[in-house]
């Protein structure tokens, strides 16, 4: 690891670098979220630093920091294959109680390292951080109908997700009698009562058209 990278960052960006440490030998810089992209561009382009390899990008949720608008910590690990040094870059974004995140947005670095694409999608999927300028901000590990972001500390581990509703006739373009042959009980042999609390959610209302058709 290289202390030089940290010193150079501090000399160049000054106030934008909030904190640095080298615990366990990992050089770390906490930076302002607004300067996230300029700093990344600098790290990539500077000939002495030359961080050409994005190792990892992930997020950590700290609900107790929500009041300071620093709830989600976006963590970026960088490495330079030629220069053989590494750096960890962090920025804190977002506020909000429970699962309603507000302002959890940060610039995407996919234009600097194309490999960030899937890592940013995963961070969005798991923690709800939106990356501005990302070409394809979709969920990646979860399905599109998933409600919430599972790696938030406020997401209960035992929560059951609402069942995915049938597609309507218009949406699927298939007549109802040709769609999946399950009734309101989703084809289960026993009734599932776990979803009562999500009763308001229109998506849990299973296939209103089906009964009409029959």
């Amino acid at each position: 690891m290289s202390k030089a990278a940290l010193e150079k960052l501090q000399a160049t960006f000054g106030d934008a670098i909030l904190e640095t440490h080298s615990d366990c030998g990992d050089d770390t810089a906490l930076v302002k979220a607004e300067s996230w992209k300029p700093i990344c561009e600098f790290l990539r382009k500077d000939p002495q630093l030359d961080f050409d390899y994005l190792v990892d990008l992930c997020g950590v949720d700290y609900p107790e920091r929500a009041a300071q608008k620093q709830r989600i910590e976006v963590v970026l690990h960088l490495c330079s294959i030629g220069k053989r040094h590494r750096l960890r870059l962090k920025a804190r974004v977002g506020s909000g109680e429970d699962e309603e995140l507000e302002g959890a947005e940060i610039d995407s670095v996919t234009s600097i390292w194309p490999g960030a694409n899937w890592f940013e999608r995963e961070t969005y999927d798991m923690l709800g951080v939106t990356f501005r300028g990302h070409p394809d901000m979709r969920r990646i590990l979860m399905y599109p109908e998933f409600v919430g972001h599972p790696l938030l500390k406020t997401y209960p581990a035992q929560r059951t997700q609402p069942l995915v509703a049938y597609r309507t006739e218009e949406e699927a373009g298939v007549p109802l009698e040709k769609q999946a042959p399950f009734g309101d009980d989703e084809g289960l042999a026993f009734p599932r009562n776990d979803h009562d609390r999500d009763a308001e959610d229109p998506r849990t209302k299973l296939n209103p058209h089906k009964t009409e058709a029959i």
Binding site: D52, V55, G115
Partner: peptide, 9 residues
């Protein structure tokens, strides 16, 4: 090689 590094391979 350059593309592979850029893609974090």
């Amino acid at each position: 090689g350059a593309d592979a590094v850029a893609l974090s391979w």
